[in-house]
Computed example of a mutant assay.
Amino acid sequence: MKYDEFIKHVQSVAQVDSREKGEAAIKATLEVVKERIVGDEAKDLAAQLPEEIAQYLRGREGENGQHFKVKEFIERVSKKEGVEPNDAVMHIRAVFTVLQNAVSPGEFASFKHNFSDDFGEVFPSLSESEASA
């Protein structure tokens, strides 16, 4: 998936009205993902994304991720993006939905294994990922 296509899909799923807001949602979400997951897994995920997006996942290779729950994940994204937590949840879900369609099924499964069950609310349901395909 190309960079512009990724942004347009995030804008659509997140229901944001500008490219800048879509880009901000992607950047904030993936920067917090980088803090949360194992650095080498972030590198593997980045390898399947456009460079403009992949850069947000790089820089922690060889490091372990920080263990924090979904509430803190949402708070961190909310703060980085400068939006309310409820909006951050929608934006995270949108980024994860588009991510699921942008990388291989095996890579997305590996990515998802980095998160505990309480993260279910920010991962796309099957119908959402099919809708954005």
Rank of each mutant, 00 (worst) to 15 (best):
K2F: 09
Y3A: 07
D4V: 12
F6W: 04
I7V: 15
K8L: 13
H9C: 13
V10A: 09
Q11W: 10
Q11N: 14
Q11T: 13
S12V: 01
S12I: 05
S12H: 11
V13E: 09
A14Y: 06
K21V: 02
K21S: 01
E23L: 00
E23I: 00
V32I: 01
V33A: 04
V33E: 03
R36V: 04
R36Q: 14
V38M: 10
G39W: 15
A42V: 12
D44M: 01
D44C: 01
D44P: 04
L45E: 00
A46I: 09
A46V: 03
A47F: 01
L49V: 09
P50M: 15
E51A: 15
E52A: 14
E52W: 02
E52P: 06
A54D: 07
Q55E: 08
L57A: 02
G59K: 02
R60P: 03
E63K: 12
G65W: 08
H67Y: 13
H67N: 13
K71C: 09
E72N: 15
E72I: 06
R76D: 02
R76N: 09
K79L: 10
K80F: 09
E84A: 12
E84K: 11
P85T: 00
P85S: 01
N86E: 13
N86G: 10
N86M: 11
V89M: 10
V89F: 09
V89Y: 07
V89E: 10
M90E: 12
H91P: 09
R93S: 00
V95F: 08
F96S: 01
Q100V: 03
A102T: 09
S104N: 15
G106V: 00
F108E: 05
A109Q: 12
S110T: 08
S110R: 11
K112L: 13
K112Y: 14
F115I: 08
S116P: 00
D117W: 07
D118L: 10
V122E: 05
P124T: 01
S125W: 14
S125T: 15
L126M: 15
L126D: 15
E128R: 02
E130V: 11
E130S: 11
A133W: 11
